[in-house]
Structures are given as structure tokens and as C-alpha cells.
Write a protein that binds this DNA or RNA. Structure first.
Lengths: 334, 334
DNA sequence: TTGAAAGCGTTACCAC
DNA sequence: GTGGTAACGCTTTCAA
């Protein structure tokens, strides 16, 4: 592997000059530049990012923490991050988190300046003690899909999203609408489901609709458990005519339950999800869409700006939008 | 940020000693070690991985190239890689590939020693010219889900998988079985669909069954286009009683088509997929399962072995297995 | 416009 | 056991 010294020697110049050529410094004569470039080509020389980083005093790695297990949506966000970062000199260093223990380890790594220049945390609320350390050290960290006070974040207004879902179903004429979401005391402290529920209940109240007893259901995140609680809901003496699920994955479970009971959708049951993952379109699922890919891209841009010293990045709130598909319609329209 | 010199000075020892303590060298007295450790703690000192890498002559990064767009299965493989790497000192540097142009760029990066110590390529056949360079430089590269001559690979026997699918359906009594897979001249050169088709056709021939005209269909990978070609198949004067799809994603499209026509599954149509992605279990889809997570983990271990200088890693072939679910049954069993 | 040399923070070798 | 010091490959002064 050729080094800068080899290139300098072969080109008959000093290493400083080679360095200037590499870094597009204007202080090199065209003649010299051409010569050096030729040698670089000939020797197939590539600067060592390690040595460069050491000399410059910073690395080129950005840590990205992702709970893969959580939902299909985090993958889409990650793609957004990768798309932006791949156009820069930064490398995307990936940390998967599948357990609370792993989460704490990963956040520990983020706190170490030597491993990465900055970090992006996707869909994962930080543990309080690690957060304190992050604050103390003023490490450049951007959160995506989580709102952490004092840190740049890319989020959506989950409460508003809940209201949007309620409004859509109310406008179709539904009155008996149930909610299916996550437990609100999970190990990782995810809170979006709770906020969506709140917005939904608010929206119902605003329209003068109270939720019947037992119409708010919480089950471990996943299609299967959503299916199970929905089966219970539909078995009620006076079942709902519509369900708002806190995520598309859960909404797919709701559809599954309806199908298993031979209930027509949307005639017998209308369903609205949240996220607009790829599978939602296939399933004809109406949903509250949030810009997943864009959230990752925006987060990466925020971090880049922070790293570039361009002041505090602040908060970014992305827009929500109801996507109407075959899974919703007027109640009782068999 | 404290450096090794700061620690040495504060502890009243030489930098060599501090280095020894960091690296668990036995040539340090307990007394000295304790003292140094205390100072490290006090100063919250963290060794610079950059400087360490430069001094040692190698980085600690492993490049992982993933075509995210391709299928849900690559994500599962990636998790396997992350799980293994996260337990080591190596960092997982992620490169997403969404286009041929990106693919070529990424492979170019892999060829640069400075950026990563070794690489893992998932589900992506390398372009021939880059492959040649990879060979010339003897860069440690492991392929997962692709068989590249001369390189360590983690694969499954796709041909055998096709045979397994054929056998399962034949045993149930099906004779008119169609195949739905990918185009065999795609931009990225994916070949697994073609091999699965071959095995399938072989399996049919071996049982004395010829495939009727037009029973082999190829459509751009994805649920929707699989649904479309299946609709055509089912519209034939003498339609198939079963379909083998080259991937679960496509099999879900096949199910979709059957449902749209009001065809009972498995009574009116049996369906077998390939992969066993998460959605397959939800959809009750019978499939040829390959160990996705394990393939990534195994690939990472192979690379680690290579990096550790433990000889050539060779090839690993993971087992396939038919998972029977509700989507298959005897033909005409309405 | 250019070359020489001093760092950057480690590790490893060589004396003591 | 331990300290001093030469690498590692680059960037960036400082002179010339």
C-alpha cells in the first residue's frame, strides 16, 4: 500500500505538496499538480483516513443507533440516513439494539468521543443517566422519532396524528371507535402510542363522543397480539364499527382479526393505521402517514449541520397526512 | 479530552506503562497498574481508536454492503451480522445500495484498505471488474447469499430448495403447478430465483411432470407484480392448482391474487414461498425456510476468522427446510 | 509555490 | 518492571 511519502518521492516533491494536491489547495502550480496526480494514479494511492483523522483531530464516523426489532418503519428511516450520509465523507457506523442491556451499552459508546464524531438515535428514548452524560459532554446527538428536551430532534406531532385519525372516522359517520396500541409502560419507554391515543381520545371528545368502556386496548407491539385484542373487541355485545391502531403493524393485525371473523372491511369494520409502511399500501390499509425516509434524511442533515458548527439545529417537525384506502368507509355499509 | 500522555504524567509513569495497562499486559506490577487505573478513571480517559489503529497499522471497521430495497430478508441477515460484530471490537460500517451506480461506488470503497479492514457483502453479486480488483488485492471479503468463486460465501442450495417445494406440492397431489419468480436478466444480476426455478423444474421432471406452456412466469421482484402475473395464470383456461413463488414477498402477491378472485386457499390454490420472512408466519404461508439471521451471523464469523489470520474460510452452506402452513393442501379440496 | 519539520495519540522495541 | 523513543501516515505551520 503506497503512502504519501512514496508518492512524494516518486513525484520528486515534498509530502506537503502531495497533501495540498489531495486536499485541493489552490497553492499548487498546475504543472506540479498534474505530476502528483499522475503518480497518485500510477501508484493507486489512497490517503489513510486513520492518519488523516488523527492529524485533523477528528474521525469521520457517525454512530447510528437503531432498534431493528421494533418496527419495519425504523428500516425506512435508516435508509434515509444512509442516503444522506453516503454522499458525504462520513461513515455510517451501525449499532443495533435488541435489548435494554444493549441499549445501555450502545449509549455508553456514543459518549466516547473517540469512536464517533456524532450520533443519530432512531426511535429509541435514551436512559436518563446516559442522557445526563450526553448533556454534560455536549456530544452532537440528534434524535429521530423521539423528542428529547435540549437535543435536536426530528419528530411528528403524534397527538395531532391521533386527532386526524379520529376526525377521518368521525366524518365517515362512525361513533363506536376503538383504539388498539402499545402498553404504555414498556421497557424501552416508547411513548408515541400513548400520544396517539391521547390525540385520538381528544378528537373524539371534541366531537362529543365518549369512548365506551373497554374500547382502549393495549397489547405488546406486534401483529399477532393486536389481532388477539381485536378479536376480544369484536366479541363484545356492542362491538366497534371502526378501529384506530397506533401503528400499521398493529392495524394489519386488526384486519386479520376481522377477516378471521368473516367481517367485511370496511363495511363491517373500518381500520386506520399509523406510519404508512410498505405493507400498508399492499393491504389497502388507510393510515396516518408520516414521512419515514425523510425523517432519517432530515436527522442526518441536522447532525451534519451541527458537526459543521453551524449553530444549534433545533427541532424539526414533519407533517402528517391521512392516506385514505380501501379499509375505511361508512359504518354498516355492507 | 485526556490523552495517554496526561495519564502518564498524572500517574508519574511513562506512556509505555499506561499503554501496557490499557492492553492488559502482564508486565506491570499490581501497584503500578492500580495507580494508573485510578488516574484513568479520574481523568475519564479513553484511548483514541484512531491513533491506536494508525500505530497498529489497521482500522477496526468492517464494511457491510446491503441492498436494502431488495427484500425484507436482507434486514434480517443484517441483524445477524450486527449481533456478531457488536460483541467484538469491530465497528459495522453500513453502505446501502439502491442503484447500480451506488453499487459500483460501494465496491470501489471496499477496495480501499484505508476505509475498512474487511467487508461483508449481502445479497449482491459484485460487478466483474470490481471483483477482479478484489481478487488482485486479496482483500478479506465474505459474501452472504451470493456464491462468488474464490471467495468465502454463506449460501443455501437454491436448486435443492426448488426441488423441496416441488416435492411438497407433488406429495399433496398437485400436478398443475406454476412458478412465479424474478426476471433472470436483472440489472444487479441476482440469480437465486433462476436457481430455484431450475430446481423446481427438475423436481417436476423427476416425478414425470412436464410444466404446461406458460406456467413459468417472471415479473419484477415485488408483491404487486407477482399478484399481477398470478392473476393472468389463474385466468388461463386450465389454471394451476398450486404456485411456487421464488420468494415470500412474491408468494404474498400470489395469495393476494387468489383472494381477489375469491379463490379459497389452499382448496382452490396452494401456495409455497421461499425465505420464511416474518410476514410469512402471519399470512399462514407455507415456505422453504432459509436461516436468514444465521446467514449474517455466520458470514460475520467467517470474516472475523479471516481477519484473525486463521486460514481460508471456505464456503458455508446453510440448511433449507419446508415449513408447512395453512397455504398448502390437497388440490380441489374445497 | 514549495520543502522541511513539528505535531496528532498510540504501540512496540530497546535499554536500564 | 519500567521509561524513553522511534515509528504509523497525515496536515499544517514556518521559512525559503
Amino acid at each position: 500500500m503506497a503512502t504519501i511519502v512514496d508518492v512524494a518521492a516518486r513525484a520528486g516533491v515534498g509530502v506537503g505538496t502531495v497533501s495540498r494536491v489531495i486536499n485541493d489547495s489552490p497553492l499548487v502550480s498546475d504543472r506540479t499538480r498534474a505530476k502528483v496526480l499522475a503518480v497518485i494514479e500510477e501508484l493507486d494511492y489512497r490517503p489513510s483516513s486513520l492518519a488523516r483523522g488523527l492529524s485533523l483531530g477528528h474521525s469521520t464516523m457517525i454512530g447510528v443507533v437503531v432498534p431493528f426489532f421494533h418496527t419495519p418503519s425504523v428500516v425506512e428511516r435508516l435508509r434515509g440516513v444512509a442516503d444522506v450520509l453516503n454522499d458525504t465523507d462520513y461513515d455510517l457506523v451501525l449499532f443495533n439494539v435488541d435489548s435494554v442491556k444493549q441499549r445501555d451499552e450502545r449509549f455508553g459508546v456514543l459518549n466516547r468521543r473517540d469512536r464517533s464524531e456524532g450520533a443519530l438515535v432512531i426511535s429509541l428514548p435514551p436512559p436518563p443517566d446516559q442522557l445526563r452524560r450526553l448533556r454534560e459532554r455536549k456530544r452532537p446527538v440528534v434524535f429521530v422519532d423521539v423528542d428529547v428536551p435540549g437535543f435536536p430532534c426530528v419528530t411528528v406531532d403524534d397527538v395531532e396524528g391521533g386527532r386526524l385519525a379520529a376526525r377521518h372516522l368521525l366524518e365517515l359517520g362512525h361513533r363506536r371507535i376503538a383504539f388498539v396500541g402499545d402498553p404504555e409502560k414498556g421497557a424501552f419507554g416508547f411513548t408515541s402510542s400513548a400520544r396517539r391515543r391521547r390525540g385520538f381520545v381528544e378528537g373524539m371528545k371534541a366531537a362529543g363522543q365518549d369512548l365506551p368502556e373497554g374500547f382502549v386496548r393495549r397489547a405488546p407491539h406486534g401483529l399477532e397480539s393486536a389481532r388477539a385484542v381485536t378479536a376480544e373487541l369484536l366479541g363484545l355485545p356492542d362491538p366497534p364499527t371502526a378501529v384506530f391502531a397506533a401503528s400499521d403493524t398493529q392495524a394489519l393485525g386488526v384486519l386479520e382479526a376481522a377477516r378471521a371473523l368473516g367481517l367485511e372491511v370496511p363495511g363491517g369494520l373500518s381500520v386506520v393505521g399509523f406510519d404508512d409502511i410498505e405493507g400498508a399500501a399492499y393491504a389497502g390499509l388507510a393510515t396516518v402517514r408520516q414521512p419515514l425516509h425523510q425523517s432519517g434524511a432530515e436527522g442526518a442533515r441536522l447532525l451534519l449541520r451541527l458537526l459543521g458548527g453551524e449553530g444549534d439545529a433545533g427541532k424539526v417537525e414533519l407533517p402528517l397526512e391521512v392516506v385514505v384506502r380501501a379499509s375505511t368507509g361508512p359504518p354498516g355499509d355492507l
